[in-house]
Design a protein around this nucleic acid. Structure first.
Lengths: 194, 194
DNA sequence: TATAAAAAATACTAAATGGTATTTTATTAT
DNA sequence: ATAATAAAATACCATTTAGTATTTTTTATA
């Protein structure tokens, strides 16, 4: 990674952190350059405009995070009900106090930007869509290996697991308490055992 | 209601609508006065500052909406499992296309403002706390009348119902589809039948 | 109808906004 | 070393921001 790539990465990660704290619209370029001590010229050298920077956050940070943490581990071997449960549990247990306070960054971006920017919305949707797809497939495997009840529609269940995950992170954020993560995990387990 | 009260109400409702569309931080006073055709003097006559206006939205609009739609109907007579289910179902069926697209306004405010403003956070938390409390009580009644399994902790179940409700509204918003509301209602029914 | 008070209108500020144009400094290939 | 190019710095722009100060209009009351 050369100097320019490093600078770009540094700007992007700082920008992500500010967006995570304050929202996309409320994170000004001026705040980003103040925080990075990079100049505005440098910023605009690496990003065409604020929107492209937002897209880079979605494509290079949010997408990667969901995939690495919540999608890839679904491929692990074992009873699929257990694999699914452990995937989500492991990730939720790794969440820091800051991440608790600020919630799921993908969820935040959806909440704020999906109704305002169709480009953002499409990219965010495909993150969730991919997760839902992979989770559905894992559920179907679980139904085959007998660890998940065949009565449930895999897609419906996958969508519910995802939506209630996002909901749990919202309540955790509001109450600043990991308690709601545990409530969620408890219900998730029940959901997968049926 | 006298003239001044009407003006205040008109400003507040317009402001709420703009905040619902664009978020709190991105809704400027200038946008509000442009939309209302009320002058800045009039705005600042009725609201001390932007934050107080935000608090008025929370206390006079969000709180009322949740209470009227999702809390009060819990007092209806009948098998409590059914009353709870019908309360949420009725409300979700009444959600318009615009409300689908923009999601739950209380959820939006939590997502955006809870980490940034403790006054907002407290007021928003008490909305959810009250809902959770009343829902817990209804669940306990349901456990007494035999319509809800006594194995579940009422508070845990209430928290999960609320968090997954918010999650469902998030997915509905992202996909612009009522489908995810139905998925949620289906799971809710199962949850209450156990 | 005159007066006081409430409500609203107008004009303004200082700071911040996203973005651009221009200049300067580093880096690389010849 | 020099020329070409990449990267970053600087200065600036038009517009928008939340909020204030002042003036005008409307309303209620004596």
């Amino acid at each position: 990674m050369n100097k320019a790539q490093q600078t770009r990465k540094y700007i992007l990660e700082t920008a992500f952190s500010l967006v995570y704290e304050n929202g996309f619209q409320s994170t000004s370029i001026d705040k980003i350059i103040a925080e990075t001590n990079v100049t505005k010229g440098a910023f605009y050298y690496h990003f065409k405009n604020k929107e492209e920077m937002g897209m880079a956050i979605i494509n290079e940070i949010l997408t990667v995070s969901i995939n690495e943490n919540l999608v890839k581990p679904l491929a692990n071997h074992g009873q699929k009900a257990e694999v699914i449960y452990q995937t989500i549990k492991n990730f939720m247990l790794s969440i820091s106090d800051r991440q608790l306070r600020l919630g799921c960054p993908t969820n935040n971006m959806i909440q704020e930007m999906a109704p305002l920017n169709t480009t953002f919305a499409r990219a965010l949707l495909s993150i969730i869509e991919n997760w839902k797809q992979k989770l559905s497939e894992a559920i179907i495997e679980g139904q085959k290996d007998g660890s998940i009840s065949p009565n449930q529609d895999a897609v419906v269940l996958a969508a519910f697991i995802i939506s209630s995950y996002e909901g749990a992170r919202t309540l955790g954020k509001l109450y600043k308490s990991f308690e709601y993560y545990n409530f969620y995990l408890k219900q998730l387990k029940a959901l997968l055992e049926k």
